[in-house]
Nucleic acid binder design. Sequence first.
DNA 1: GCATTATTTTAATCTTCATTAGAATTTTTT
DNA 2: AAAAAATTCTAATGAAGATTAAAATAATGC
Lengths: 202, 202
Amino acid sequence: MQSRNTGAESPIDTRFQLKRNRMLKAAAHCFNLKGYSGTSLKDVADILGLTDAALYYYVRNKEELVYLCYVRAADVGREAMQRAVAEGGNGLDTVQRYLRYHVEIMVGDRGPIAIMSEIPSLSRGHREAVLELSRSHSAAFEAILKRGMEDGSIETSDVRMTGNAIMGSLNWIPKWFHGDSAMASKIVEEFPRILSSGLRAA
Amino acid sequence: MQSRNTGAESPIDTRFQLKRNRMLKAAAHCFNLKGYSGTSLKDVADILGLTDAALYYYVRNKEELVYLCYVRAADVGREAMQRAVAEGGNGLDTVQRYLRYHVEIMVGDRGPIAIMSEIPSLSRGHREAVLELSRSHSAAFEAILKRGMEDGSIETSDVRMTGNAIMGSLNWIPKWFHGDSAMASKIVEEFPRILSSGLRAA
DNA sequence: GCATTATTTTAATCTTCATTAGAATTTTTT
DNA sequence: AAAAAATTCTAATGAAGATTAAAATAATGC
C-alpha cells in the first residue's frame, strides 16, 4: 500500500494508530510552543526520530495534522464534561468537577494538547468541523451553568460571558505550563476552586 | 535620511510616531488573527495601503514588529494597573478596577493588542525584555492579591496560580473578541465581576 | 528463506516570504 | 519653485519549508 493516510482504519490496526497518536502529541507540543506556521514538519519529525517526509505516511498534509490535534483536544473537553455530568450533583458541583477533570487530563500524560488557537490556519471544511465541536462544547458548559442557576448553586448574570472567561483561562494553560509535575498537581488543586469560587472572602 | 528605524525618536517627531502606531495596531490585529509566522508583512502592509517593503522604514525587521506590539501590550496592563492602584480601596476593589480598566483598554480603540502568545518567536534579547515586563506585571498583580488577603477582602490559597488563572482569561480575549462593540461593553461589565467573584451563589 | 506489505529515506521541486538596494515620489523647508 | 528630507515603490535575492516521487529498508506471513 502506498499510503495509509486516506481510508478509515480497521479497529485491529494498532501499530499505525499508536504511532500516529505519538505523532499527534509531538505535533501538539510544537504547536503550543511555536504556533502552527512557526513549527516545521521537521520539528515534529525530530521529536519522533523520523524524517519530515515520513510524516506524510500518517497524515495527508500539515493542515490535517493540526486538525487531528484539535479533534483530540476536543476529546479532552468532551470526556471531562461527560464524566462531570455523569456523577450528578448540583450545577456548581458539576462545574467544579468538570474543571478538575479538564485540567487533570490537560496537564497529565495525554496533554497539554489543547492548542485551540490556530483556527484560522485550518481549511474551510476542517474549520467548520472544529468550530462545531467548540460550539457544542460551549453549549454543554453553558447548560451546566444554567442548571446551576436554576438549582440555586450558581449566580451569574451572563452565561455566555462566564463561559468565555472560564474557557479562556483553561485554554491559556498550555501557554505557561510546560510539564512540571509539581506544578501540575497544584493546578489541578487550585484552578477549579479559583474559577468557580472567585476571590471574594466569605 | 535613509531609514528612521534605528535611533531614538525625538519627542517632537509626531507624524512618524503616529504612522508607526497605526502600523503596530494593524500588525497586532494580524498577529492575533493568524499568529506571528502566519502573518506576512504584506498582510500588515495591505491594511495600511502600503507595500511590504515600506514597513522597513518604520521597523528594523519583522521580529522587531512583534516586539513593539508586546511593548504596547504591556503598556495596557501597566496603565490599567497604575490607575487601579492609584485609586486606593481594599485589595478586592483594586483587583476589580484593574480588571475593568484592562478590559476597557483592550476591547477599546487601542486594542485588542495583547497578543502575548508569540514569545518564542522573539530574539533572545527581546524575549528577555518581554519576559521581564511580564514578570513585573504579574508581580504587581500578585502584590495586590496579597494586599487583599491581608486586609481580608480576598481569600485564595495560591496567589501565583490565581494570577495565572485570571491573566489567562484576559489574555484569551483577543482570540474570540473581534471588535463587536455591543459585545465590548458586555465584556467590560461582566468580566471583572466573574473573575473576582466567581460563580458561587451568595 | 521468499514474497508481500509496511515504513522510512533521499533527492528533487515549488512556493511563499523576509529582506535589501536603489530608484521614484511625495512632503517640507527655504 | 528649487533643494533637501522623508516616504514609498519596484525589482531582485535568498532561504526556509511543504510536498512529492521513487528508491531503500524493515517487518510480516507463508
